[in-house]
């Protein structure tokens, strides 16, 4: 059985370079960084070199790589178009928060990923931590294996 997910990164120059690649994708035993893309080619080349990855010159080129999933860390106004491209290429998508500019955009992302049979994750980096999972398991014993979010279910805002 396959034991690692091959990753491409769209938007390699910001949080991806500072945190998610060096602290997440590189040390994760079940993940391997294959290729990166950024609109700033110079920065992208530097990130690729820094993490021993292939510098893709376009998103289309990145999506033609042998990758299973993409991590999207671009400005939010770019997310919808990049999610559509990635989903049509059959890649699972882990997208930075917020998913879109509007509810409608987010729903569009969910719809295309569902249609293509792909997982769409939202990069709430503080959410799946060990501490919270253990806390949830005490509060929701029956749902211990898949904790529902009792703690962060906001019902009203002002």
């Amino acid at each position: 059985m396959k034991n690692e997910v091959l990753w491409g990164v769209i938007g390699s120059g910001g949080i991806a370079r500072r945190r998610t690649i060096p602290e997440g994708i590189i040390p994760a035993k079940n993940a391997r960084l294959i290729t990166v893309f950024d609109i700033n080619q110079e920065v992208n080349e530097a990130v690729a070199s820094q993490f021993n990855a292939i510098a893709s010159h376009t998103i289309e080129e990145l999506l033609l790589s042998e990758i299973d999933a993409v991590y999207i860390a671009t400005p939010v106004n770019m997310h919808l178009g990049q999610v559509i491209l990635s989903a049509k290429a059959g890649k699972h998508i882990f997208c930075e928060k917020p998913l879109g500019l509007t509810i409608q955009e987010a729903e569009g992302m969910g719809a295309i990923c569902k249609k293509e049979g792909l997982f769409l994750g939202t990069a709430f980096f503080a959410s799946p931590t060990t501490a919270q999972r253990i806390s949830w398991s005490y509060m929701v014993p029956k749902a211990a294996s898949l904790p529902r979010v009792l703690l962060d279910r906001i019902l009203q805002a002002r």
């Binding site: 980096f125 503080a126 799946p128």
Partner: peptide, 10 residues
Amino acid sequence: TYLAEIEEFS
């Protein structure tokens, strides 16, 4: 937490 989110999604 960055390791946790990538490992979980993977």
